[in-house]
Each structure stands twice: as structure tokens, then as C-alpha cells.
Amino acid sequence: MQNNVLLEVNNLKTYFEMKKWGFVSIGHVRAVDNVSFNLKQGEALSVVGESGCGKTTLARTILGLYRPTSGDIVYDGKSINEFSKGEIKAYRAQLGYVQQDPYGALPPFMDVRRILAEPLIINGVKSRQEQEKLIERALTDLKMTPVEDFLPKFPHMLSGGQQQRIVIARAKILGPKLIVSDEPVSMLDASVRIEILQLMRQLQEEYDLAVIYITHDLSTVRYFSERILVMYGGKIVEQGPVQEFLDNPSHPYTQALLEATSDPDPKNAETFKKVPGGEPPSLLNPPPGCRFHPRCSYMIEGLCNREEPPDFIIKENHSAACWLYR
């Protein structure tokens, strides 16, 4: 099973229509624009990019919360475009979702027991005993013991790290094969970030989970994943195995990112945002050609600002969308 493809994303586009005065269309925000990648069973994949580049939109589209504008997502051999409304619901329940803000992700009026029971009840785990068993296992997996201490707690009684562990417990309680976690630690204290990431890594290995780990913080990627995917302006600009990627960053944007985060201290993670000079591209009116060209020091006049670069293979499994490698 190890090398089976679990998730296949083909030419995925998710656009948001922008309207003026509520009805006049003024164009589309191309939040995810022609993204393709594969994810194998049990594989951890990091998606990196600055804020606003479409990471969350990509996550939500994969989770079936947004319908793609075009393109296709194939999960376990089935295309989600062909799903009916009911099947979409069932599909969503097969994936786990870990959100950025743990407090916001937990209903404040439910206690931990109820929060963890909800996905079970919704997905047909009717027996009380069965529910208790699964809840206990999920909490134990996240080192929230003794379990009884946490069950009656409401979210506001828990620390940020504990809240996020509940969110993770909820994401995996139905036994998904894939968990999408969208900047799971960016809102937590630096002190608990590594701990949470290590826990997730442990779970991923123990249960052979596929994980899409979205972050804008390159420094945490090394703790986590085998493969990395860099997004810029709604597109994937580079993808490859982590080690290869760190040794041989190819896209000028990636190089700039890595320079900024050569220091593994997570506190410096915030600094990288500023490093490549200039503004992130508008997704409503993206620049022609390569979207990075207005900020790129290697820009080739007449090519980069005219034609969109295809993916060029750098090495096996490592590609970059940059004309430098034509």
C-alpha cells in the first residue's frame, strides 16, 4: 500500500467571483489556479507560501467545502466532481481537518466529550459504548490523560495547545486516511508548536496517515514532511522532496524564502514574509507570464513577463515552474 496514490489533484482551479454593488461581476479572484499534485498513502506533504497565496482555499477545496471552478480531485480512485450532495458529505467525513485558530474551531458551548462525539453521531456511531471507546482512544493518542479530566471541560477552560489537540483528536476520531491541517501551530505559543508538530508526526507514522501540512513557516517544515510544495499567487512554483529541496532550491522565490529562514529558530519565521521585495501579486488581476516576475531578480525580459512558465523537471520528483530551467 505504501506507494499507492491516495489523492490526485489535477489542474485544480478555485475562483471567487467578485461583485460590485452586489450584482455586477468585476472579475474573479484566482485563489487556486491550475494546481496539480499527487499524495500517496501515509505521506506527509507540506504546502508553503506567504499569506494570501491560496493555501486555505486549496485546503477547503480538497476538503469538499468549496466546489472547484474547474479541474478535478480524485480521492481513493473516485472523482469528487461526480459526487452528489450526500456523497460530498460522506467524502468530507473521510478527511480530517485541523484549522488554524483552535479556539474558533471548537464550539464554545460544547464540552470536550460532546465535541468529540459530534462527528461520531453524525457518521452513524450510535452506540454509547463505541463512542466512549473512540473518544478515549483519540484523547489518549494526543496525550490528553487522564481522559476523565478533559471530558467535561469547555474550550475556554483549556490552553491553546490543549485546544489544538482537541481539534486534532476530532480530526482523526473517524479514522481518516488523510488529514488536512491548515497552519495548525501558527496561532500557538512558540513553546508548544514543536510539541504539537511532533505529536502530529507520531500520529501520522503510527496510523499511516497522509497529511497535508499547510504553513507559511518554512522552519517547521523540516520537522514534519517528506515532500514540499511551494505556492505563489495561487500556483505551485516548485515541488520536491524536502532534503533535495533544502539542498537545491530552484525557483528564485523559494531561494529567497530559504535564505530568510536559514535560522531554524521559529521566532525568526515571521521575518521571511518581507524578504522578497515587493508586494504579493493581485489574484484578481494577476501579472501576465510568471506571477513572480515583478519581484524576481532573474527576470528575463520578453519571456517571464509574457509567457507562463510550465513545470521544468530539475531532478526526479523535483520540478520548478521557472523559465531559468527551460
Partner: peptide, 8 residues
């Protein structure tokens, strides 16, 4: 959104 994600 989380509830929608687990199928509510």
C-alpha cells in the same frame, strides 16, 4: 466550517 467538514 469544521462541522461541515465532518459531515454535519
Amino acid at each position: 466550517e469544521a462541522a461541515r467538514a465532518y459531515g454535519a
